[in-house]
């Protein structure tokens, strides 16, 4: 097992005791989907919950002093950083897959049509929000630790929320972003590639910060 894979596994074990809360949040996503009568919203809501909980490894690291564990295991700093981003990406993939399956079930239950392009568009926009938020949050967590950074870490959420409100105010008749992306595979691909670039840039910043840090 490579060191990065071992670290991703270690992170998964670290947050595993909180699995019940993830399931609860996923259940909440389904409930919202039912209430909104929009099955694709399950995906978006689940991803938002995923973002909220992706910081949990940092929180537990702070609480239980896991930096000492990483030191005794001689996990290189680079591996800690890359492992955190890889773990977050894997979580997005898992949450995306599970929430897509739930959305399909919900659409069948509600008798609505959920097309593949609609799902892909929602996933692309969700990934963009995920990448932007994680991309801002993780360097803050690596620099300051979870406890000191958690208030600042809400900043990207506020920015996304403000952007949505501003967009809605400026163009009340405009389509939603997923609906705008839906007919254009090229635009969706640009969104995904740009989001990945944001994550890579964020990872490089985090490596620089964490590599210099005294634990």
């Amino acid at each position: 097992m490579s060191t990065v894979a071992a670290f991703v596994r270690l992170d998964a074990l670290t947050v595993r005791p909180q699995l019940r809360s993830y399931l609860f949040l996923l259940g909440m996503g389904v409930l919202f989907g039912l209430m909104l009568e929009d099955s694709s919203s399950v995906i978006a809501i689940s991803v938002v919950y995923g973002i909220l909980t992706s910081s949990y490894a940092f929180a537990i690291e702070d609480k239980d002093g896991l930096s000492v564990l990483y030191g005794t295991l001689r996990v290189p700093r680079d591996v800690v950083v890359v492992g955190r981003y890889v773990g977050a990406l894997l979580m997005f993939v898992v949450i995306g897959a599970v929430s897509t399956a739930l959305a399909a079930l919900l659409s069948a239950f509600q008798g609505e049509t959920l097309t593949a392009t609609e799902v892909l568009a929602v996933l692309a926009v969700s990934f963009a929000i995920f990448a932007f938020t994680i991309g801002v949050q993780f360097p803050l967590f690596f620099a300051l630790g979870y406890t000191r950074a958690k208030l600042l870490a809400y900043l990207p959420f506020l920015l996304v929320f403000a952007a949505v409100v501003a967009f809605t105010q400026a163009a009340p008749d405009a389509q939603s972003l997923p609906a705008w992306l839906e007919p254009s595979a090229g635009a969706g691909a640009v969104v995904v590639v740009t989001s990945l670039a944001v994550l890579v840039a964020s990872c490089l910043v985090s490596r620089r910060i964490y590599g210099r840090k005294d634990l």
Binding site: L13, P17, K63, D64, G65, L66, L69, T72, R74, P76
Partner: peptide, 22 residues
């Protein structure tokens, strides 16, 4: 921060440095 052999050194502190819920 660089890689090194983990096997050779064992560390015992005044309290465990593992996840408390493990």
């Amino acid at each position: 921060g660089a890689p090194g052999p983990a096997d050779d050194v064992g560390v015992v502190l005044d309290r465990p440095y593992y996840v408390s819920d493990w």
